[in-house]
């Protein structure tokens, strides 16, 4: 029920007074209200819950998490090459 899925904003338009976005979830695009995340912009990743973006994913914080894991030597030789934010 509290599931929220990350997706990327591809377009934004006004609809019945709501700021609505088309959000790409790994190839499937869905309409999402941006009313709760007024600062979200095209290209941002947002966490979407029941048709509303509830947060803008903080790319710097995500990268920082991976750097922390690396500093713990946890990821030595174990990270896939395509993970963004894994490189220093």
């Amino acid at each position: 029920m509290c599931l929220a899925i990350p997706g990327q904003i591809v377009s934004i338009a006004e609809e019945r007074g709501q700021r609505m976005a088309q959000v790409d979830f790994g190839g499937v695009t869905q309409p999402v209200s941006l009313h709760l995340t007024p600062q979200a912009a095209i290209g941002d990743y947002v966490l979407v819950h029941v048709g509303f973006a509830i947060s803008r994913i903080d790319a710097e914080e995500a990268a920082h998490t991976w750097r922390t894991l690396q500093e713990m030597d946890l990821l030595a030789n174990e990270l896939p090459a395509n993970v963004e934010g894994a490189q220093p």
Binding site: P6, G26, Y45, I57, A62, W66, E78, V83
Partner: peptide, 10 residues
């Protein structure tokens, strides 16, 4: 999917 798959790395 970005911000999903990497957090499922076994």
């Amino acid at each position: 999917m970005k911000y999903l798959d990497e957090y499922r790395d076994g």
